[in-house]
Computed example of a mutant assay.
Amino acid sequence: MAKWLQSTETLTFEVRDRIAWITFDRPEKRNALNWQGLRELRDALIEADDLTNVHCIVLGGSGRDFCSGWDLTSGESSPVKEAHSGNQQAEYRSQTATLEDDIWQLGRMNELRMVMFEMHKPVIAKVQGNCLANGTDIALLADLVIVASDARIGYPPVRAQGSPPSHMWLYHMGPQWAKRMLLTGDLLCGTDAARLGLALESVPADELDAHVEALARRIAAISPDLLACNKRVVNLGLELMGAKTLQRLASELDARGHLSAGRLKFRQSIEDLGLKEAVRRRDAAFGDGMVEYRWD
């Protein structure tokens, strides 16, 4: 039985059997992210970390997909848009468009995500369907990533728009496979993502929920204090390998990518053709976009 359940505009939060279940809940948008969703995710993660009856968190998506990326149709361009809406006389960097302003906004975005890395309790990302672009920025910060074998994982926006502003690819896959994915924007199926270390393991889609719940229950059987010791020592090791510094550098390099001719051309294509057709043309040369991976 659920101990309690609450919902926001973008997610649901349920506590059950010492596990917090945080679920993106915009299936009509394929769980595409926006600033409000990132803020609500940050708040939910902090709430779960604070609750004494929660030992472990499972992060998932409702419907077909974990998260299809950023919601380019939302019209929400600023992390502080609502806070500034009542002040018509002041000008804020979040409303302007210099390189430094872009770096500032991307830094604010990373701060919202990095709570998953910095919090004390372990987070499992349960990934089905599409986990694309900004969806990977979220999933790859989880402590454990479990994927459906037919999930599709990748960062297609590198073909025309920039670079991942959050970058855990190197730490999961090593340099060559990280480059292979980010130099093409191709996608991995869940099975290959697990083989290459981008995920811990893959299971058939119809077994994903039960498999993740069984793992979460094993983790939740341990004291949160001990879980925190073992999560944080590994993450401190990642910090010593530069992981947190790289997140900051990644957001700054993404801002540089936003000034590229390819990105400006893509933005114009969206205005001229609409988002769906612009994305179709961006990806046309890549076929189905799946990595043709061979083990033998």
Score class of each variant (00 low, 15 high):
V147T: 10
S269W: 00
L132F: 12
A221Q: 00
R30H: 12
V54R: 00
V54H: 02
C56Q: 10
R195F: 11
L140W: 11
A178Y: 01
L170D: 14
E9D: 13
H84I: 14
I219D: 04
R180M: 12
N230L: 07
C67H: 02
V158A: 00
I22C: 03
A151W: 02
L227V: 04
K231C: 08
D143V: 00
L236M: 12
R218W: 08
M116E: 11
A243M: 03
R159D: 06
A220C: 04
A199E: 03
N110V: 14
R218H: 06
T96F: 07
F286E: 11
T245W: 13
A148R: 04
E207A: 11
D272W: 11
D150K: 00
A284H: 10
A178K: 04
D283W: 04
L5E: 13
L246I: 13
V80F: 11
L183E: 14
E100D: 15
L141Y: 03
L208K: 08
K276Y: 13
T98D: 01
R294K: 13
A261H: 11
W4C: 10
D288V: 06
D17P: 01
T52W: 06
Q95K: 10
L275V: 07
A205S: 09
D254Y: 10
I46S: 11
V15R: 10
Y92N: 07
R248W: 10
P164Q: 06
W169L: 09
I19F: 05
I222A: 10
S94C: 14
A32H: 07
K231Y: 02
S62C: 09
A2T: 15
G289M: 03
E14Y: 01
G75A: 03
I219V: 13
G197M: 05
V127T: 01
K29M: 09
K231S: 01
L226H: 12
R108C: 12
L264Y: 09
W169D: 12
F24T: 03
A285V: 11
E213H: 15
Q88T: 15
P164D: 04
G242M: 07
L275Q: 08
P175M: 08
S74W: 06
I138S: 03
R263P: 05
A142T: 02
N130F: 10
R113H: 09
L200I: 10
F266C: 07
Q176D: 14
G262C: 09
Q268C: 08
Y293F: 15
W177P: 00
R256I: 15
D288M: 05
A210T: 12
S166E: 05
P165E: 15
L72N: 12
Q88V: 15
D272C: 07
T23A: 11
K121G: 01
Q268P: 05
S7A: 15
R217Y: 07
I22G: 01
R42L: 08
N34C: 14
L182A: 05
L198S: 02
D288Y: 02
W104A: 12
T23M: 09
G37V: 08
T8L: 07
R16G: 07
S149P: 08
G63P: 01
L200S: 10
L144H: 11
G242T: 04
G237D: 11
A250Q: 03
